[in-house]
């Protein structure tokens, strides 16, 4: 039955967390990056393509959690898309394994400009605990320069959201 459910939901508090506020210094740094690159601005909404470049899947769990009712990333105008061709942001996790390097580069090549590259998780930042392995290149920047890094093992959904919302803020300014 729809009506009782509707009534119940109108009478209870929202299940969603209050919105996150990004750190001002991060927003400022991103704005500078934008200006330097003379990059064309994207709108107030970002389409995100997630790329797992060899993670342990811990980071994926937290990327998934971005979509649950508590974090609800779509309320910010953020959404995950199925193809790099639709993406404004590449959200990359994992230490960049040698077996994934070509796929990541091809994915980047398939993403239209302008694009933000975000390295999420300690692995994506510099290889994390897997640094130095024969099978790992050690961080996203070994293939593409990230615009934003979000450390953590894994970063919490709130930390990831703060980063993504900072991207929105940077181009709104």
């Amino acid at each position: 039955m729809l009506w009782p459910r509707l009534a119940r939901n109108l009478l209870t508090r929202p299940r969603t967390d209050p919105p996150v506020t990004p750190r001002p210094e991060v927003v400022a740094a991103l704005r500078e990056r934008l200006a330097e690159a003379g990059q064309r601005r994207l709108g107030r909404s970002l389409a995100i393509r997630h790329v797992d470049a060899g993670s342990c899947n811990g980071c994926e769990l937290e990327c998934h959690a971005l979509g649950n009712v508590a974090h609800d990333l779509e309320r910010y105008g953020l959404r995950f898309v199925a193809s790099p061709r639709h993406a404004d942001v590449l959200l990359v996790t994992g230490p960049l394994t040698r077996n994934m390097a070509e796929a990541l580069l091809r994915c980047r090549a398939a993403t239209p400009e302008p694009v933000w590259v975000v390295a999420a998780g300690d692995c994506a930042v510099d290889g994390g605990v897997f640094k130095g392995s024969y099978a790992v290149l050690g961080g996203v920047e070994e293939a593409i320069m990230p615009d934003l890094v979000i450390p953590g093992c894994p970063p919490t959904p709130t930390q990831i959201l703060e980063g993504l919302v900072a991207l929105l803020e940077a181009q709104a300014g």
Partner: peptide, 11 residues
């Protein structure tokens, strides 16, 4: 599979 091979055992 094998794309996420990180050399975990060797580490």
């Amino acid at each position: 599979l094998g794309y996420t091979h990180k050399g975990t055992l060797s580490l």
